[in-house]
């Protein structure tokens, strides 16, 4: 999973496969982080308090 695991090899399979995993995790992680931060900002600005 990480380059410091002893079975890690810098070959195409590892780069493509792990690249895919970290890419997906990156999108999910970054996406959610951004959304949560934006939500904190929106809430601080007083949005959403008086909807409907």
């Amino acid at each position: 999973m990480f380059p410091f695991n002893f079975e890690w090899v810098w070959d195409m399979s590892h780069i493509v496969f792990m690249g895919g995993l970290w890419y997906a995790l990156g999108i999910l992680g970054a996406g959610m982080t951004f959304i949560v931060l934006k939500t904190i900002k929106d809430t601080a600005e007083g949005k959403g308090g008086d909807h409907h």
Binding site: A24, I27, G31, T39, T43, H51
Partner: peptide, 24 residues
């Protein structure tokens, strides 16, 4: 308000997650 905003923001960017989900 916080949950309302969170829900709103998640809806807004849902396409990104849905596309990632389809890929996965």
């Amino acid at each position: 308000p916080f949950w309302h905003n969170l829900s709103h923001n998640m809806h807004t960017y849902m396409a990104v997650f849905a596309a990632t989900g389809a890929f996965l």
